[in-house]
């Protein structure tokens, strides 16, 4: 039963911070998504010891371990944009590949050099 209570408690805490993020996103003009605001607020709460790490498990690990799964329907949504993607596919594919490669290498190498 202890674990059920833990699941409910951790689920509620994470939901609460998401709701806070949504509220701030709604009342402010910030172009920052609610989930990111919720992340920042929860991070602050952890630092201020308002929330303890053990209060967030097991829901946090459930969510984090399965995050990739949640992207499946988002990706299937590409289906709706096939005509647009079709007309610009070459520009999109080449620029995405070149640019992603450059960012990976720049950030990886730069950070490795800086902390050496």
């Amino acid at each position: 039963m202890v674990s059920l209570i833990n699941i409910i408690r951790s689920g509620l805490i994470i939901t609460l911070f998401l709701m806070l993020g949504k509220f701030i996103n709604y009342v402010s003009a910030l172009p920052i998504p609610s989930a990111i605001l919720g992340l920042i607020l929860l991070f602050l709460a952890l630092n201020l010891r308002l929330v303890k790490v053990k209060h967030l498990t097991p829901t946090s690990s459930l969510l984090l371990n399965n995050m990739t799964l949640f992207f499946v329907p988002v990706g299937v949504g590409l289906l709706q944009h096939l005509p647009l993607l079709h007309s610009f596919w070459l520009a999109i594919v080449v620029s995405s590949m070149v640019s992603t490669l450059l960012v990976l290498l720049t950030v990886g190498w730069l950070y490795q050099r800086l902390v050496k």
Binding site: I14, L39, N47, V53, L64, F70, F71, P73, V74
Partner: peptide, 22 residues
Amino acid sequence: ANKIFVWLLEPAIVALALPLFQ
């Protein structure tokens, strides 16, 4: 039918605060 997964993305992003804190 799959709104549930899209809906779970947001709390998952909030939960990223944990590895960040650690």
